[in-house]
Simulated assay, not measured.
Amino acid sequence: MGNLTRRDLVVQVAEETNLPQQQAAKVLGSLLRILMESFGNRQNIELRNFGVFEIALRRARVGRNPRSPGRDITIPPRAVVRFKPGKQVKRILQKVTQELLEESAGKKSSP
């Protein structure tokens, strides 16, 4: 179970839509460009049943440089993207949670 890459998405979209991979790549590229432009315009992105990508401001905080942990540094505030899952994604995550809990319980009980 590796990560899903851009290339994997292109291949899957091409297979499901019967489009050539070049066209699927162009569609995916356009979609990602539009999403990034929306973030640049400070728009949230709402995809029904999937979820909402929201722009939020992370407050300034104090952190430490791992290379010199004796000194505190101030991390400035910055805009971040947060994801709030929709109903269908929540259901999937509940199943994944259950599977992960069962796997971890199995690892603990085996000698």
Results as ranks from 00 to 15, higher is better:
Phe39Ile: 11
Arg58Phe: 04
Asn49Trp: 05
Gly70Pro: 06
Val13Asn: 04
Asn49Gly: 04
Pro85Phe: 07
Lys84Gln: 13
Pro69Ser: 06
Ile75Val: 14
Phe83Val: 08
Ser38Cys: 09
Leu47His: 04
Val62Ile: 15
Phe53Leu: 15
Leu19Ala: 06
Leu35Gln: 11
Gly86Cys: 09
Gly40Gln: 13
Asn41Gly: 05
Pro20Lys: 06
Leu28Met: 12
Ala79Trp: 12
Val52Ala: 04
Asp72Lys: 13
Gly86Asp: 05
Val62His: 04
Pro20Val: 06
Asn18Gly: 09
Gln21Glu: 14
Ala25Val: 03
Phe50Val: 03
Lys26His: 13
Gln22Ile: 13
Ala25Arg: 10
Ala79Gln: 15
Leu35His: 07
Arg42Asn: 15
Asn18Tyr: 01
Gln22Trp: 04
Asn18Pro: 01
Ser30Tyr: 14
Ala25His: 08
Leu28Tyr: 06
Pro66Lys: 07
Val27Leu: 15
Val81Glu: 14
Pro85Thr: 09
Gly63His: 11
Gln43Trp: 05
Val80Met: 11
Glu54Thr: 07
Val81Gln: 14
Pro76Lys: 09
Leu19Asp: 12
Val62Asp: 05
Pro66Ser: 11
Pro85Leu: 05
Leu57Pro: 00
Ile75Glu: 10
Pro77Thr: 04
Pro66Phe: 09
Leu19Met: 13
Phe50Tyr: 07
Ile45Asp: 09
Gly86Ser: 09
Leu31Ala: 10
Asn44Gln: 07
Ser68Val: 12
Arg33Thr: 15
Gly70Gln: 15
Pro85Cys: 12
Gly86Val: 06
Phe50Ala: 01
Ile75Gly: 02
Lys26Phe: 12
Arg59Asp: 10
Val27Glu: 10
Arg59Pro: 00
Glu15Ile: 03
Leu28Phe: 05
Arg71Gln: 11
Glu54Ser: 11
Asn41Val: 00
Leu57Glu: 15
Ala79Gly: 06
Arg67Glu: 08
Thr17His: 11
Leu28Arg: 02
Arg78Trp: 01
Arg48Ile: 00
Thr74Asp: 00
Leu19His: 07
Arg59Tyr: 00
Thr17Tyr: 13
Thr17Met: 11
Pro69Ala: 08
Pro77Gln: 07
Arg64Thr: 14
Val81Gly: 08
Met36Leu: 10
Gly86Gln: 09
Ser68Asp: 14
Ile75Tyr: 12
Gly40Met: 06
Ser38Pro: 00
Gly40Asn: 14
Phe53Ser: 02
Lys26Arg: 15
Phe83Met: 03
Arg59Ile: 00
Arg48Glu: 03
Phe83His: 04
Asn49Thr: 09
Ala24Phe: 04
Phe83Trp: 02
Ala25Gly: 15
Val62Gly: 00
Phe39Val: 08
Ala60Tyr: 02
Arg64Ile: 11
Arg64Gly: 13
Val62Trp: 10
Arg59Gln: 11
Gly70Val: 00
Arg33His: 14
